[in-house]
C-alpha cells in the first residue's frame, strides 16, 4: 500500500519537475514558445537569434542553478534535522547561512585590506566558495558542541539566532570600513540571486553540490540509525564519530557553496524536508533523500518563476519569495506538530 503511494508520488514529482523546468525556461520578460525552447535545447537554431541567446546564456543557467540550490539546501536541511534530532533545524535557521555570509563578507568587504595580487585570488569564485564553506562549517561545529550540552530543541534554535545577529554585527562593522562599491556588491549578493552565474561558476557549483549530495547518499544508513538516538545507533554498529563527521562536512559544503553563489536563501532547507515527510509519511531516509531532492528542485523552480512574474518589469529578490513561502511553514510546524518536544 504505502510503497504504491510512494511510487505514485515519485512519478508525479518527476513529471512536475519537468513541467516547472520548462515553465521556468519559457517565463520571463520575453515570452518564448515552448516549441522554440525545445529546439534550442536540442541544439537547433530557433527562429530568432536573440531567443537562442536568452535561453542559453540566461534562462538555462538560472534554471539549473535553481535546481542545484533547491536540491542542495533541502538535503542539507534533512541531514541537520536528523543529526540534531531537531525538526526545526535547517541551514538558514541554525545560522549556517549567516556563517557563510560572514565568510563572504570578510572576502568581499575585507579584500581591500589585502595586497592587490592576493586581492584577485581571494575575490575569485574559488575564494568566495572556500570562505563561505568555511563559515558554514564553523557554525555547524559550534552548533554541534552546543547540541551536545543542551538537549532542548529550542535552545539550539536560539543559538542559531545568536549566530545570526553576531554575524550581522560583524558585517555591519566591516561595511562601515568599506567602499560604496564593495558595499553595493555585498548587498546585492545578500539578497540572493539565482541568475548572473556564468557557465563556469555553474560548473563549480554543480561539482561541489554533487560531492555534498554523494556524501549525503552514503550517509543514508547512518541517518536511519540516528533515528533511534546516538546510543542505540552505536549499539547497531554505527561508527558515530565518523558518521557525524561525514554528515557535517556534507551539510556545510552544500549550504556553504550554495550561499556563496546564490546568496543566503531562507527556509527552503527547513521547509522542504518537512513537506517530504508529510507527503510520504515516513522517516526512511532512502525515500526521504530522493523525495527531498525532487521537491527541493521543484519548489525552487516555482519560487524562481514567481520572482519573475510576467507583469513585473523587474525580478524580485529570490530570498523574499522563499521567506514569504517558508516562514508560515515554520509557524505552522510549531503550532500543529505534537511530535516536537
Amino acid at each position: 500500500m504505502t510503497t504504491k503511494r510512494h511510487y505514485f508520488l515519485f512519478i508525479s514529482f518527476a513529471i512536475l519537475l519537468a513541467f516547472f523546468f520548462s515553465m521556468d525556461l519559457i517565463s520571463g520578460q520575453v515570452s518564448i514558445p515552448l516549441k522554440e525552447v525545445f529546439k534550442i535545447l536540442i541544439g537547433h537554431e530557433s527562429s530568432k537569434s536573440t531567443w537562442d541567446y536568452i535561453i542559453l546564456n540566461f534562462r538555462l543557467p538560472k534554471a539549473i542553478t535553481a535546481i542545484l540550490v533547491g536540491m542542495g539546501l533541502s538535503i542539507s536541511g534533512l541531514l541537520m534535522q536528523t543529526l540534531f534530532r531537531n525538526p526545526l533545524a535547517g541551514p538558514y535557521v541554525l545560522g549556517l547561512s549567516s556563517g557563510s555570509s560572514l565568510g563572504v563578507a570578510f572576502v568581499i568587504l575585507g579584500a581591500g585590506f589585502l595586497p592587490s595580487f592576493l586581492n584577485q585570488a581571494v575575490l575569485s569564485d574559488y575564494g568566495i566558495v572556500l570562505a563561505s564553506c568555511l563559515g558554514s562549517f564553523l557554525v555547524v561545529l559550534a552548533i554541534m558542541i552546543v547540541a551536545q550540552r543542551l538537549r532542548n530543541t529550542m535552545s539550539i534554535l536560539i543559538v542559531g539566532l545568536m549566530f545570526g545577529s553576531f554575524a550581522g554585527a560583524i558585517v555591519n562593522v566591516l561595511s562601515y570600513f568599506s567602499t560604496a562599491e564593495q558595499l553595493q556588491k555585498f548587498t546585492f549578493w545578500s539578497m540572493g540571486n539565482l541568475g548572473n552565474l556564468s557557465w563556469n561558476s555553474i560548473g563549480i557549483l554543480g561539482t561541489v553540490v554533487s560531492v555534498g549530495l554523494l556524501l549525503s547518499l552514503f550517509s543514508i544508513k547512518s541517518l536511519d540509525a540516528l533515528l533511534l538516538g546516538e546510543n542505540y545507533a552505536k549499539s547497531v554498529g554505527l561508527n558515530f564519530k565518523k558518521a557525524r563527521f561525514i554528515i557535517i562536512i556534507a551539510t556545510s559544503i552544500l549550504a556553504g557553496s550554495i550561499t556563496a553563489f546564490a546568496g543566503p536563501i531562507a527556509f527552503i532547507g527547513l521547509a522542504v524536508p518537512h513537506i517530504a515527510k508529510l507527503l510520504f509519511q515516513t522517516s526512511n531516509h532512502k525515500i526521504l533523500f530522493f523525495s527531498t531532492l525532487l521537491l527541493g528542485a521543484i519548489l525552487m523552480l516555482i519560487c524562481d518563476i514567481i520572482s519573475q512574474m510576467p507583469y513585473l518589469s523587474m525580478t524580485l529578490p529570490i530570498n523574499a519569495i522563499t521567506s514569504i513561502m517558508g516562514a508560515p511553514v515554520v509557524i505552522w510546524l510549531l503550532i500543529s506538530k505534537k511530535n516536537i518536544q
Binding site: R85, P87, L226, L227, L228, G229, N231, Y232, S235, V236, K277, Q281, T282, S283, N339, I340, Q341
Partner: peptide, 14 residues
C-alpha cells in the same frame, strides 16, 4: 550483543 536502553527515542515517523 544488542541493547534496550532507558532513553527516549527522538521524534520521528518510524
Amino acid at each position: 550483543m544488542s541493547l534496550v536502553l532507558t532513553e527516549h527515542l527522538p521524534p520521528s515517523n518510524l
